[in-house]
Amino acid sequence: MSAAFDDSSDEQQLYAADPEWADVVPLQQYEGVDPIAPIFYSEEYKDATDYFRGIVKTGEMSPKVLKLTEHIIRMNPAHYSAWQYRYKTLIALNSPLKAELELMDNFAIQFLKTYQVWHHRRLLLGALRSVDVAVRELAFVTRTLRTDTKNYHTWSYRQWILAHFNDEARLWPGELPWVEELLEEDVRNNSAWHHRFFVVWQSGVRRDEVDREEVLRRELAFTKEKISLAPNNQSAWNYLRGVLDHTHTPYASLTSFVQPYTVGAPSDPEDSIVDLENPRPSAGAELPSLPALEFLADIYEAEGGDGISKAVRIWKSLADEHDTIRKKYWEYRIKDALHGAQ
């Protein structure tokens, strides 16, 4: 992506013609042997990087170096040497790092998918050592994720902030309500489900969450509710499995919840007593749910004995009818279970 320096980029004069840079000796890029896959640089990029190599040679760290590195980064945000040199210059000059962070807000949105943009922010936060700043950053990440709800770097950055500052009073409390908002908007957002797992199960116990039995009940209720809205949503089922595995809870404890999702059509609501603990598939849901069938087969397999043949029947239906792209996987499960049962 060739990004313009700024709105006046057309008039951007070369460093070679700029009196402010007259004291720097530009150094051209070395190309001894015939290069392979050379990049056809623009005049502007070549000029800027010539001066950057010159700067690195003398070790100059001055305000004009900040301008130069910003210029290079805007043309090539993956230029990690420019980032490294910029960071060292900021520290050497004792520059206001909060101002740098504000500049980075604009970078991050423009170059969302570039690792260096996020790495630089981590360095800044590490140097600033301020929970106030961390709070500001969480708000920034929240805004950024609105444009790209699944950006891997952005999510990693948020998880890093939470773990790095680990502030019980000011950073953690907002996470769960926020994740719930995101899942409200898009129940299939796997990054949000993953974040929920990180917040609830991996980052240590929250002050108001010492009763783990209660947390488990809450998480199961939450997940079942979300599954009832979209019974084929793999993200919710994976979360459910993750919670059960993590807490060593047998899958069989969810048999009565899962069963209504494994049949061809929703049973007549008149017939069934409303069971708040086991919400039924929402009206119009696509049934049977494949993840529910898989889950029920896992319950049967764990049962052993007659359970194995019930599991095999489900796997056969997945292989031949419901999930044919994974035919070989379901056949492998059958073989594995029958072999294990012997």
Binding site: M1, I39, S42, Y45, M75, N76, T114
Partner: peptide, 11 residues
Amino acid sequence: GLPFSQVEVDA
């Protein structure tokens, strides 16, 4: 050779 639009692979 690569066009300038690929400059991100410089590094």
